[in-house]
Design a protein around this nucleic acid. Structure first.
Lengths: 337, 337
DNA sequence: CGATGTCGCGAAAACGGTTACGTATCTGTT
DNA sequence: AACAGATACGTAACCGTTTTCGCGACATCG
């Protein structure tokens, strides 16, 4: 492997000059630049990042911790983050925790070892020890839906209220009066926030909540929760905490011969890619995943560029994506009392 | 940031000893090990990868190039690869090319810059310039469905034949005699191979191929291709080159009032996660994505461990996943002539 | 008792860049 | 002609590890 010294020798220059020409950190004569350029080509030289990171005292990596790439929530976030990072000539290091605290800590250790100047932690469940670790090293971090903001910690909070408000307004306009909710496991902060937003907006619309079940954000879980709901009767609309759950519900309803949307309306949450391909196409509260990825990078970049500044709150909106899984409530052609 | 020198000072030892204790590369007294251990804890020391990579002359990164994380084909490959890499204490660097040659080359340059000891290139379309680049630097590489194998190049080839054979056998057993095919864009090698396998096996089963359309592997494309096929009439089964296409076909059939599987059987390809959630659940030829990720790592690891050895051919099997989107051919209760 | 071997450890040279500082040379001003 | 200020470049220290080489202390053996 050719080193910068080889390039310098071949170009008849000093390593300093070569380095500066390569990085544009110091003016140099046109001819000098040419000489460097051609030596680089001739040798097939490529700068050694490790050495650069070491000498520069800073690394070109940027950490991105997510829960699980297989979860359709994350690929788009990851892609968007990556695109931004590459634009700024940073190497994104994306690792998934598989929802495992040990693994998360392992990942964090790797990040520290890599001297990352910052890390975005976009998982749903964040162990406090991770925050401590970051804080003790003063590594800038961006979290998702973590409550607080701190010295080196920014936070992206998802405005669930807005999308849920749109969803419930839509449902109310369609004459529904009784609605059910299938949420997620109560551990993740985000599931709780979705649920709370649902109840808040439901009561604002004077909707009766007939049955609210905590499920596990999986298709299977959605299926069973929906079956339970069906036993309760009464509700003409089901709102779910994520799309997988909604898909499960859709299947359950189909299997029971309940027509969607004629008999029951269903609203999902997240707007994963496949929400548009369900039968019928799922109405869902869209969480702007690409935007989250972009904002996460931007937030991190700000934090890194200005270590003195305190963390900031960022917010992304959710909005209703209207498709075919809702309709007027079944008994709605009768005039309202 | 505490360095190894700080640790050495605090422990009253030399850096060499600390390094060796930390890496277990030289025997040391129990007491010495303790001293190191405690100094490390006291200072919150964490080894600097950049320095280590530089000094060791090798990097702990492993490249993984994929087309597009958003494509449901890749997350599982990426995850599996990552899991394996972490097990071996390597940092996987996953980058997507977005199907763009420029970006691909940019990614490759980054890999070279990071001194990766090897890279897995698991995209469908591989530009020859990428191979040249790798070859000129003698960087071990693993490709997916690239034809050849070379000095530093291993290849994973997907055995499309097997799964397609199962699919067509299944279809034949169900009394179908005429079948259509919706393939992908002819550029990617893999799409061509799928198509060829289909025709080979179809003729082996003496099936008549009524209509074969090259689409674009998207849901929308599948929809339109299916519409065209419907105009041709005759076929009682449709086999597609990937699941997105099959999903599009499913929607088209639904919209036209053609029942699946009663009127027409549909078979997908890939077995993406959502194939099981379509209505009806999609029968599809499963491509073992996790296995591809694992094998890619293993292949790379072998190549790296034994640079002298030539590249190898690996093969992964495809198999039919039976669900609900096929049934006996409509006219099949009539006795066959 | 001296030769030999083993064990535990330290000194210092890499590794390939960056960058603070210093030294020519060139230009224009007085 | 002398001098200031650019301009263009080189020298060498440094970043935090790994790793080679070698040194002393102690045990073993003839």
């Amino acid at each position: 492997m050719a080193s910068i010294r080889d390039v310098a020798k071949r170009a008849g220059l000093s390593v300093a000059t070569v380095s500066h020409v390569l990085n544009g950190t110091r003016p140099a004569k046109q001819e000098t630049q040419e000489r460097v350029r051609s030596a680089v080509c001739g040798l097939g030289y490529s700068t050694n990042q490790a050495a650069r990171n070491l000498a520069g005292g800073k690394s070109s990596f940027l950490g991105l911790i997510i829960s699980d790439l297989r979860n359709p929530f994350f690929p788009e976030i990851t892609s968007a983050f990556q695109d931004q990072a590459l634009l700024r000539d940073m190497e994104p290091i994306a690792l998934n925790t598989n929802y495992d605290v040990h693994r998360t800590l392992n990942c964090m250790r790797r990040m520290v070892s890599l001297q990352v100047p910052g890390v975005a932690i976009l998982t749903s469940q964040i162990d406090p020890s991770v925050i401590d670790m970051l804080a003790s090293k003063a590594i800038p971090a961006v979290f998702l839906d973590l409550g607080r903001v701190d010295r080196c910690i920014s936070n992206i909070s998802i405005d669930y209220e807005h999308g849920i408000e749109e969803a419930l307004a839509h449902i109310t306009e369609n004459g529904h009066r009784q609605v059910s909710f299938i949420g997620g496991p109560c551990h993740p902060h985000s599931a709780r926030r979705r649920k709370k937003a649902f109840f808040d907006r439901a009561s604002a619309h004077e909707l009766t909540v007939t049955g609210a079940i905590d499920s596990d954000f999986s298709v299977r879980g959605g299926y069973y929760a929906c079956a339970k709901l069906l036993a309760m009767r009464g509700a003409t609309a089901i709102v779910t905490g994520n799309d997988l759950t909604a898909i499960g519900a859709l299947h359950c309803l189909y299997d029971r011969g309940v027509r969607v949307p004629q008999d029951v309306s269903v609203v999902g949450f997240d707007d994963i890619t496949f929400a548009q391909y369900t039968q019928p196409a799922l109405i869902t509260v869209a969480v702007p995943r690409e935007e989250i990825g972009r904002v996460a990078f931007q937030a991190l970049w700000d934090l890194i560029s200005n270590p003195a500044l305190p963390g900031k709150q960022y917010s992304v909106e959710t909005t209703l994506t209207v498709r075919q899984s809702t309709a007027r409530a079944p008994d709605c052609d009768k005039p309202l009392p």
